[in-house]
C-alpha cells in the first residue's frame, strides 16, 4: 500500500492570510486548482517552515474530503507547489 504519491507540480491556490493567528504560519489555503479540478480544503493539519538561503519555504498539509495534500509556498516568489498527496486515515 502506498502512503503517499509525489507530485511536485506548480498549482494555483486560494488562501486566506490571517496575521492575527497565534500559529507560526498564518496562511490558510482554502482551495486549489489542480489539473482543472477544484479541490476545497476543510482543515489545515500541519505547518512547518524551512529556509533555503534567505528564502522561507512553508510546508502546509491540508485535508480535503477525499485526501490530504502537502503544499509548498515560496514566500519570495509567492508560488505554490503541490508536493504530494496522501490518503486519508
Amino acid at each position: 500500500m502506498s502512503y503517499e504519491t509525489s507530485i511536485n507540480e506548480s498549482i494555483k491556490i486560494w488562501a486566506f492570510f490571517d496575521p492575527s493567528t497565534p500559529l507560526g504560519v498564518n496562511i490558510f489555503p482554502i482551495a486549489m486548482n489542480w489539473r482543472r479540478r477544484l479541490i476545497k480544503f476543510h482543515k489545515l493539519i500541519f505547518t512547518s517552515s524551512k529556509k533555503i538561503g534567505e528564502v522561507k519555504i512553508l510546508n502546509l498539509v491540508c485535508a480535503s474530503e477525499t485526501a490530504n495534500f502537502e503544499l509548498e509556498y515560496n514566500t519570495q516568489n509567492q508560488l505554490w507547489k503541490l508536493k504530494r498527496i496522501m490518503p486519508q486515515n
Partner: peptide, 9 residues
C-alpha cells in the same frame, strides 16, 4: 504521523 494522517495508528 502528524504530517501524514494515513500513518496514524
Amino acid at each position: 504521523q502528524q504530517t501524514n494522517p494515513s500513518l496514524r495508528g
